[in-house]
Design a binder for these strands. Structure first.
Lengths: 90, 90
DNA sequence: TTGACAGGCAAGTGGTCGCTTGCCTGTCAT
DNA sequence: ATGACAGGCAAGCGACCACTTGCCTGTCAA
C-alpha cells in the first residue's frame, strides 16, 4: 500500500507511467528515448531501469520477455486502493 | 502534484489522514494520543507537527486557529487529480 | 562465431527525509 | 502576573533514495 505511494512519489516514475499510458508495451530503450525527447528528462538507461523495477515491484507495471527484448505494460489497478481507502467520490 | 504523492508516501502521514477521516477537526495533541493508542504509532509531538505541516502544504489538511488551539481538517480533493490523470474508472 | 545490441547486477555517492533535541512564542486559568 | 498548556522554530543526525559507474549475461545478425 505505502509502497505504491513511494513509487508514485518520484516525478520520473510518473512520467514513465504517462508514457506507458500513451503507448503501452515499450522496451527500456524506447522509454529512454521518449522520456528525453517528449518529457525533457535526461535520464540514463540504468536510472530508468531501476525506476521500472520499482514500478514493477508494486504492480503498476507488468513485463513480458521476448528474446532479448522486455516489454513493459501499465497497470493502474493498484491505484484503485487509494480511491477505496479515502472514498474519493469521482 | 508530485508533492501530493510525496506527502502520501509516509505511513505515519497516511495514519494521520485516516484519523482525521474518522474524526475531523482534531488538535495536535489529540492526534498524538489517538495515533499512539489506536494506530500503535509512537510518534512524538514534533514529528506529528511536521507531518501536519507537510499535509497542509499540499492541501490535504486545512487548519483553523481558535485561541491556543489549532484544529485540523481533512480535505481529500487533491487526491482527485490522481483519478483524473490515470483514468481510474472506479 | 563474433561483434553489436538489449538488459541486468552491484558498489559507491550526494542529497533528501523523518526524527530528535533544545529553546522560544502565544494563550488561558488561578 | 505567573505558571501551565498548546504549539512553533531551527539545528543536527542517521537512514534512505536516486543516480552514477563499471562490468557482466544473454540474444540476434552478419
Amino acid at each position: 500500500m505505502g509502497d505504491v505511494f513511494k513509487a508514485m512519489a518520484d516525478g520520473t516514475r510518473r512520467a514513465i507511467l504517462d508514457e506507458l499510458q500513451e503507448r503501452t508495451g515499450q522496451t527500456l530503450f524506447e522509454l529512454c528515448v521518449r522520456l528525453t525527447t517528449k518529457h525533457g528528462l535526461g535520464s540514463s538507461r540504468q536510472a530508468v531501469s531501476q525506476h521500472l523495477d520499482v514500478l514493477e515491484a508494486v504492480g503498476l507495471v507488468t513485463t513480458r520477455r521476448e528474446g532479448r527484448y522486455k516489454f513493459h505494460y501499465l497497470d493502474t489497478s493498484p491505484l484503485r486502493t487509494i480511491v477505496e481507502r479515502w472514498h474519493i467520490d469521482q
